[in-house]
Design a binder for these strands. Structure first.
Lengths: 236, 236
DNA sequence: GCGTGTCGGTACGCTGCCGTACAGACGATC
DNA sequence: GATCGTCTGTACGGCAGCGTACCGACACGC
């Protein structure tokens, strides 16, 4: 299971899976946008305004609690799309979504997205399948959060993000990673240190580099392979 | 937030939300079934054969790990349906689904279910909304599993099951509850004992009785209200 | 009534992670 | 090159829940 090197019609794999005719029609509705670190893509209480198709950027879906803590429940990059709520729930979504890794994306007006899907093109089928793949990702994470060690979950997070970015460098601080994983920053330091000692990753002041993907895959739990396998079976 | 007393066209709230014409058409496709404790409703690796609409029974969706441990990722009762994978993913689903609380249900052939949904009736809209409500349930559980105490999660589980059954008695052993929550049986004993001391529940050899719902709601975390609120906003 | 299996209560030491705190290392800025 | 803010390393006691084990209470079948 190696990192996919995108050489497709579109860097976003949902868009890349569209038949030519659908792709042409839809691309006229797409507007390129830059993902900036931390930029909100959806705020609970508001209706989703757009559907986003990440190309090189990555988004996080988090549950925010009344005391301010945020726990990541899903990661969305070029393998998926942000804005399923526009399709499934009239744009209503209690989860927060923001940019985790800056980069390129395209977006589509939420109404146009809904219209395109209701019209019954190929995007509908892909969105349906992706919705299920996301459900599997979130469900497996729920179980993983319960029983797997921080070391394993940390490796999984790095692998999932690595899959979604260009190159082997991921810009993020331990502080940030700690928040996503729902643990202390000091805990991440220890887990990251262990991975570094095993020469799987290296890092330095806010940048992590993946050195040995295979090794990381061995270090993580089975959840990684299941989530990725299921996505590939559904979207291909 | 009190327990809903179903006095509707159908004890299943998805079916009850259908307009009369759709309900009549669909009910001809429904076959009553008895949910027996532990009965499998879906096994990973197989295609879903039916969609189930629980009336008084309750189902569990669990992630099963290679060492045999199973962690519950969702609970489905009369507020929902089992078999979204037939709609979203051609029946493919890596999660195990089985009966947690025995009772009544109706089921529909998976192909008929797919056909009915593709034909664009009211069931499609409801299934779509329910899919999102389930995504929210699972996502919030993922975060909850990470940060909330066993006591809180135990109370939440009891509330969610209480919402889905008739009466205040829930037949389940601490052993079983421990597996669902992904903790030791001894841990559940302690949590349950604490709830009993506060006179919120009582129990005896495999039967739990909810005494004080309001109290339980105060004892649990905010996740319960969020999940339930979101479901009601989407299905009503 | 007696044996057997199931269910729940309790105890032990152990471990992973917590909360907190402080210190060193590095980078940017002036 | 001095300063300051950010990022990472480390240490401390503390606690929730773990794995395991044992025991009593109860239900059921004979």
């Amino acid at each position: 299971m190696s990192k996919p090197l995108p050489k497709l019609r579109d860097d976003n794999r949902i868009l890349a899976s569209l038949p030519p005719a659908d792709y042409r029609r839809i691309s006229r509705l797409l507007e390129p946008v830059q993902f900036r670190r931390g930029q909100p893509l959806h705020e609970p209480g508001r209706r989703a305004t757009h559907a986003y198709f990440p190309r090189t950027g990555v988004a996080s879906v988090v549950a925010r609690f009344s005391d301010g803590t945020a726990i990541e429940v899903a990661t969305i990059g070029n393998e998926g799309l942000v804005g399923l709520s526009a399709y499934l729930a009239d744009g209503r979504n209690p989860m927060e979504v923001f940019v985790q890794v800056p980069g390129e994306a395209v977006r589509m007006d939420a109404d146009a997205f809904r219209l395109e899907i209701r019209s019954g093109g190929a995007l509908r089928d892909l969105a349906r399948r992706y919705a299920f793949a996301l459900l599997v990702q979130v469900g497996q994470s729920a179980a993983c959060n319960r029983i797997h060690s921080l070391d394993q979950r940390c490796a999984r997070w790095l692998l999932m993000t690595h899959d979604r970015v260009l190159g082997d460098h991921i810009a993020l601080t331990q502080e940030y990673l700690a928040e996503m994983l729902g643990v202390r920053r000091a805990g991440v330091t220890q887990a990251a240190h262990a991975l570094k000692r095993r020469r799987l990753i290296d890092y330095h002041r806010g940048t992590i580099r993946v050195i040995d993907r295979r090794g990381l895959e061995r270090a993580t739990c089975e959840c990684y392979a299941l989530i990725r396998g299921e996505h590939e079976a559904l979207i291909g």
